[in-house]
């Protein structure tokens, strides 16, 4: 009954695992991106610590980046709390991405945009040590509030993420891990990830992560398709379906 699962034992930072981050590693959960996991101390997102993600606006791909790990955490009856997401979430898409919705809690920003509420909620969540993962978006978090969150996270087992705009890149931060993420055109719409801070040796090169997207979309995203599309007939003017160009694949609107 009381046997501790092996994974839990291995996840503890004080147990030697033989990789190069060993002495610095926190318990971690695999990110689901092998290329990224290789570069993260502990082989994944740290638990019991705050990770800071710098990205501008919603929709860079940050959710796709975090969801595999969240999914993993929730699979074991853990809860995911999303605090002040920049846009409403699409339950169907979350479910399709494998998130068990019954383990998901959203704390809305609130109409009055009381940022403090979001940070307060995040701190409460981390203090309670109840959720397995917390994602908190904040435009105005300062180094003091980051520090508070890191402290709260360190006292528990929650994987904590703070999402902030990239203008905070140069602010000091007590988060144990800092990354900057940005969507990019090269390589057919991948996500560029720069690891700004980690326990262990610094990493200068960007990582380019493939996000799960239908292949067909990406092939259209290649530059030569761009031109073929643009020099075709205008898509919507004159306002008639008859003006829609044939796509190279043979498919167009009817």
């Amino acid at each position: 009954m009381d046997a501790v699962p092996l994974a839990t034992v291995l996840a503890r930072s004080d147990i030697w695992r033989g990789d190069r981050f060993a002495d610095a590693a926190l318990p971690a959960v695999a990110s689901g991106f092998a290329a990224l996991d290789r570069e993260l101390p502990g082989g994944g997102w740290p638990r019991g610590a705050l990770t800071e993600l710098l990205c501008d606006g919603g929709g860079q791909g940050e959710l796709s980046l975090l969801l595999p790990a969240c999914k993993q955490l929730c699979a074991d009856d853990g809860w995911l709390i999303l605090i002040a997401p920049p846009h409403p979430l699409h339950a169907g898409a979350l479910a399709a991405a494998g998130m068990p919705l019954e383990r998901l809690l959203v704390v809305e920003q609130g109409r009055d945009k009381k940022e403090l509420n979001a940070l307060w909620a995040a701190e409460q969540a981390l203090n309670s040590d109840a959720p397995a993962a917390v994602l908190c978006w904040s435009m105005q978090a300062d180094s003091k509030s980051v520090r508070r969150l890191q402290l709260a996270a360190a006292a528990g087992h929650t994987a904590a993420f703070l999402l902030r705009p990239t203008r905070a890149t140069h602010e000091s931060s007590s988060a144990v891990l800092r990354l900057r993420v940005q969507a990019q055109a090269e390589h057919g719409g991948t996500l560029a990830v720069d690891i700004l801070k980690r326990r262990g040796p610094p990493l200068t090169a960007s990582l380019h992560l493939e996000l799960p997207r239908p292949a067909a979309w990406k092939s259209h995203g290649r530059p030569h398709h761009t031109t073929s599309f643009t020099h075709g007939t205008p898509l919507a003017r004159p306002a008639s379906a008859a003006t829609v160009a044939r796509h190279p694949s043979g498919l167009a609107a009817g």
Partner: peptide
């Protein structure tokens, strides 16, 4: 992670108490 999750109801109550019922929800 369920042992932790047992603390969820209390957390939810606390969040709701401050932020209001509508602001704390699932899907």
């Amino acid at each position: 992670d369920g042992a932790q999750a047992a603390a969820m109801p209390a957390l939810i109550e606390r969040l709701r108490a401050r932020l209001g019922e509508a602001a704390v929800h699932g899907y």
